[in-house]
Design a protein around this nucleic acid. Structure first.
Lengths: 144, 144
DNA sequence: ATTGATGCAAAAGCTTTGCAGTTCA
DNA sequence: TGAACTGCAAAGCTTTTGCATCAAT
């Protein structure tokens, strides 16, 4: 792993600015649309390449849990998420009880047979307020 | 959500048997290869369709966290997983400290603004024993 | 000047779907 | 019988890659 040198291109700068300006967790495609309002000619591959690079550099976070499209988070504070099982909406979940998060982060978790544990991803699933109002029957998928 | 009737086809039966016979968490494609040794003509779409249905019925579990391909688990006991950030290997992680799991399952977690929380998925990431022997430098991606 | 980064288009990989024929109930 | 299911092929979607050109250092 050679320490590559990176150029601070206009595209990369704008992508990062837009991501950081959002409270939500956009997909690459969402971000592409937003960035295009400032750089009309930017391509989707450039967005993908930069998000990938920024995630590898540890500048942003890539959220791959659940759902088909990856989502990106410009906020590095380790916080949890909730995903609606009906509409796929993804929100921050910062008020997870302290002892829950603490038991994962503090008090280092020992891994199973020979694994070195680096971290964890915790995602809650549920029904978001909008979806709950629309229908009263149970969730679609048997996902936990 | 009408209660559909389901037929106990040979394909569905074999897929489920093979999945349950595995300690690992195969992808649809992995399973297709295995099942083909018993039903040489079964198609990949049939495997996908059945895994999807079985997951919706709650008979098996679909693991979509991390990585691009979904994986399936025939074991419904709620247990955690560890994924190697280098090779993608996915293992069970049943020895997660009691208080960690308990703080998530027992003592029902209240959701943020109006969400009804149905469950959670907790996945650890780390370096598996094989990968650790091969290289001594850090992880590739900045994934937590 | 170098060489990383871009835009475009094409390819790749996983998953879903349309359809005609088949099979379980 | 008839609805659920299958196999096949084609399409769909997200993501990656090859390549000629552009631009940051």
């Amino acid at each position: 792993l050679e320490p590559r040198s990176h150029r601070n291109t206009q595209q990369r700068r704008v992508i990062l600015e837009e991501l950081r300006g959002l409270p939500s967790h956009p997909t690459a495609s969402d971000l592409h649309q937003r960035v295009r309002s400032r750089l009309p000619k930017i391509s989707l591959s450039t967005v993908y390449r930069n998000l990938q690079l920024l995630a590898e550099m540890g500048t942003i976070r890539k959220l791959e849990m659940g759902g088909s499209e990856a989502r990106f988070d410009g906020d590095l504070d380790h916080h949890c998420h909730v995903r609606c099982v009906r509409c796929g909406r993804l929100d921050d979940y910062r008020e997870v009880p302290h002892h829950v998060v603490h038991s994962l982060t503090g008090g280092r978790v020992a891994g199973p047979d020979g694994y070195d544990i680096l971290g964890y991803q915790l995602e809650f699933s549920g029904i978001c307020p909008e979806c709950r109002e629309q229908r009263s029957d149970g969730p679609i998928a048997g996902e936990v």
